[in-house]
Design a protein around this nucleic acid. Structure first.
Lengths: 153, 153
DNA sequence: CTCATATAGTTGCATATGCAACTATATGGA
DNA sequence: TCCATATAGTTGCATATGCAACTATATGAG
């Protein structure tokens, strides 16, 4: 049994093509692959804060700030400064945003179906679980290193 | 059995963290995540052309050109204009490049081990195969659309 | 209360990437 | 031979992203 250590390569191909796909499919709504995750999360958790979304997707807070800024500019998302903590804002999907959310959900489902085209439901479920474990290992490793570097200072 | 359609999300986390990892580990050699794939392929296939590598990783030829340009600037790779076709060049890893190749192989192996930490060899093999299939589906779909768009013109 | 520290978010900078237009070379047919 | 077309590579432009420095606000110790 030969291993090719090609998991990284395949993940890269999947990721890069997913960007091309989302950019193409979401172009009519003036958003790109970089906003879809954030828009869907705000829809799913009304009132969520920027940092909470960043944590969910293991994104840098700068990346997150820019994605949300774009969604606000486009009028898809509104920001309400938090009364108890004025540093933080609560995010909500606007009326126009709700339509784009629906389209984005369709696009995400379509991409998922393309990826899983030849898989049974059980296989799909298994892939989700294994990829989730893998993503957790990837993130945990990097996060641990960062925290150690930070502690050194 | 509930599906979360989270494959895209997990692939994104794996990809983004792999970049952080490679950038960090390869920094001593002045290369980043964007060059590792190209350097390894040139080592593996001496005399290969830029476009051939681009096809292997399903990269855009512009991305490929820039990665190779950087490897040449750093002296890790040399370019020999092809005698039979002066548009094309043959690529080779230089003596200094050979050392960096070895380090890059170690780094890639290390990342693969992090990702597969809790998997048996059989599970790892299965993941490689399933991700390869998934990457093929992703690429084929995008490629087909591009060709159709191109044919329209 | 005051200051040190922590936290939410923003922004400048750098890299990786895709796309499209461009250059240079090659090739096949009239 | 000459031109239309195809191909290898380059480059300008745009987006997505991470990091680090920064601002504004909050909080806890004295």
């Amino acid at each position: 049994m030969k291993l090719k250590n090609s998991i990284n390569k395949q993940a890269s191909i999947i990721y890069r093509n997913s960007h091309i796909f989302f950019d193409h499919e979401l172009a009519p709504y003036q958003i790109g692959s970089g906003q879809q995750f954030f828009l869907l999360r705000i829809f799913e958790f009304p009132g969520i804060s920027a940092l909470e979304i960043a944590k969910m997707g293991h994104y840098d807070k700068g990346t997150c700030a820019r994605a949300i800024a774009k969604l606000c500019e486009l009028g898809y998302v509104t920001r309400v400064v938090c009364d108890e903590d004025k540093r933080s804002s609560q995010l909500f999907v606007s009326e126009q945003g709700a339509f784009v959310v629906k389209q984005t959900q369709v696009v995400l489902k379509k991409w998922n179906d393309i990826l899983c085209q030849d898989l049974s439901l059980a296989q799909q479920k298994q892939m989700e679980e294994q990829l989730t474990n893998m993503a957790n290992r990837a993130f945990s490793y990097i996060n641990k290193r960062k925290q150690e570097n930070h502690a050194e200072k």
